[in-house]
Structures are given as C-alpha cells and as structure tokens.
Simulated scan of single mutants.
Amino acid sequence: MAVTFAASSRAFAQPARRRRSARRNLTGWAFAGPATALVAGLSLFPAVWAFFISRAKWNGIAPATQVGWANYQRLATDPDMLAAARHTLLLTALFVPASIFLGILLAVALNQKIRLIGFYRTCIFVPYVASAAATGILAGFVFNPQFGAANDVLRHLGIPAQQFLESPSQALYVICLIALWGEVGFTTVIYLAALQDIPRDLVEAARMDGAGKWRVFRHITLPELRPVTVFTAVWQTITAMQLFDLIYTTTRGGPLNSTQTVVYYIYELAFQTQRLGYGAAAAYLLFAVTFLLTLLVIWYGRRRGSEVF
C-alpha cells in the first residue's frame, strides 16, 4: 500500500513540476522574446535582403536589374578591390599579433602587486571605451606633419619630421598604431582575467621545483593562456578586417588609396557611387573571407589542444 501511494504521489508531482517549469520558461520568454525578435529581425532581414541586392545592378532609385553572379565574378578582377584586400590583409597581419603580444605583456605587468595598480589598469582600458571616431580625430592632430605632437618628439630626438598619415608608405602603419592604442586595453583585460584564473598550486609547485620566472611563464602561464589566445585572435581578426571608423576620421582611404581597406571600399561603392549591388557583393565576399579565417584559427587552436568555442 505504501509503495502504491508513493508511486502515485510521484506521478502526480511530475506534471506539476513540468507546469511550473513551463510557466517559468514562458515568463522568461515574455520578457526576452520581444527584444530577441527585434535584434534577430534587424540582423537577419538586412543580411538576407543584401544577398538579393548583391545579385542585381541597382543604384537605390531606379528599378533593379538582375545580373546573377556577375557582381561576384567582377570582384575577382577588380584592381581596386584587390588593392583594398592587400591593405586589409597587411593591416590584419600587423594588428592581430601585435595586439596579442602587447596584451600579454601589459597583463603580466598589471598582474603584479604594486601601488596604484587600479589606476594603471584604468588608464590602459580607457582608450578602448573611448569613441573610435574621437580617437581618429585626436590622432589626426597628433600625427599632423606641420604641428603634430609626434613630429615635435622626433625633432627633439634629432630625427627628421615625418609625413605620417599624409605619406602613402607610412599611413597604413600609422593607422595600425592608432588601432593598437585603442584596442590593446581589450586584450589586456582579457589576459589579466585569464592570468588570475591560473591555479596558484601549479605556479607554487614549479617554483618549489626550482623553476625561475621565465620557465614558469613559458611552461605554465603560456599553455594556460592558449584558449584565451585563440579567442583573442579570432576577435581581433574580425576587428581588423572590419576597421572603418578610424580610416574614415583620419585618411578617408588616402593618400592615393594607400589606406583603402575592403570595408571602406564597400562604403565608397554603396554610399558614394551608389553601386549598391556591387557593394553588397563585396560585403558578402568580406563576410565569407572573415568566416573562413575564423574557422582556420579555431581549427588551428583545436589542433594545438585549445578548445575555446
């Protein structure tokens, strides 16, 4: 009799728990559902619409003319697109390793027990939260060839003044330097949090075995940071390949198109020359390349034993 009563009690309690769980889920979705639908709609609808535009010739006013895959085929032989791709790849190749290296270096320095450490950490992170447009405008004054602070420093060091953002051979490197100044705070904070999550027992055991600081860093710290490095590499790769605001506020793709990246070229196609179909095709090509590079970094990280995604 007791066994029968207990079984019937459990059978009655299970539907009640399911009803309570369903009620909680419905309450949660009632709050989160409208915002989720709005974000998804604003993200998915433009992406799908842009794909259809990429297969047409359209200036935004006259009726669109369907051209199939002609826009994508034309991108493969467009000299301006190829030049923009080279600039983007060079910027990415410079920016991503430098941001990772500086992030680790600054994180290790800021992980020490020193006075005013909170102030130093804040100073490193402030450029990241500052507006990128404001950063670009400020950098335009700093690197001005006539009255900029950068050339003043060089003159005091006995180095000839440079053209910086007005030089076709220097402008892209200066853009990379400005981007690093604004983004290194992000990588520093990520690595600082990862350093503080490393088990102290590993470090103490290595030191008791006679390992110095360099060996501890090389054989314990760096392997423990590997998953974070994969994430940072993916994030910074996407950041570099989509860099627009700094270029817009500093060089506008010049001089002589030496800083024209793929994103800025897309902006010129779509909003300055009104070639919306061609610009949408270029945007989808950028998405495909970014996606493939991201998969490559994740695959390499997993081959090295770092599964972060």
Results as ranks from 00 to 15, higher is better:
T250W: 03
R252E: 13
T290L: 09
A161T: 13
E204S: 08
W235A: 15
Q162W: 02
Y265P: 09
S169L: 13
I238A: 10
W181N: 08
Y173G: 13
V262M: 12
H219N: 14
Q162L: 11
P199W: 00
Y267W: 14
F291P: 15
A179L: 10
W181A: 12
I159N: 03
Y265V: 07
F287A: 13
L180W: 07
A281S: 07
I175V: 14
T250Q: 02
C176W: 13
G182C: 05
A179P: 11
L243F: 10
L243Q: 13
C176H: 07
F217T: 08
T290M: 15
W235N: 15
P223G: 05
Q272C: 03
A270G: 15
F244T: 04
Q170V: 04
L276A: 02
V174W: 10
S169H: 12
S258C: 11
K213D: 15
A161N: 06
A194V: 06
T250H: 05
L286V: 02
G210L: 03
T229N: 04
V184A: 01
S167D: 14
Y173E: 09
E183N: 14
L172N: 06
Q260T: 15
I159H: 07
V189R: 04
A194H: 03
F217V: 05
V263P: 11
L292G: 06
R207L: 06
Y173K: 02
A270M: 12
W181Q: 05
L192G: 04
Q274E: 09
Y248H: 11
V216G: 14
T259L: 06
V297M: 08
F217M: 11
L177K: 00
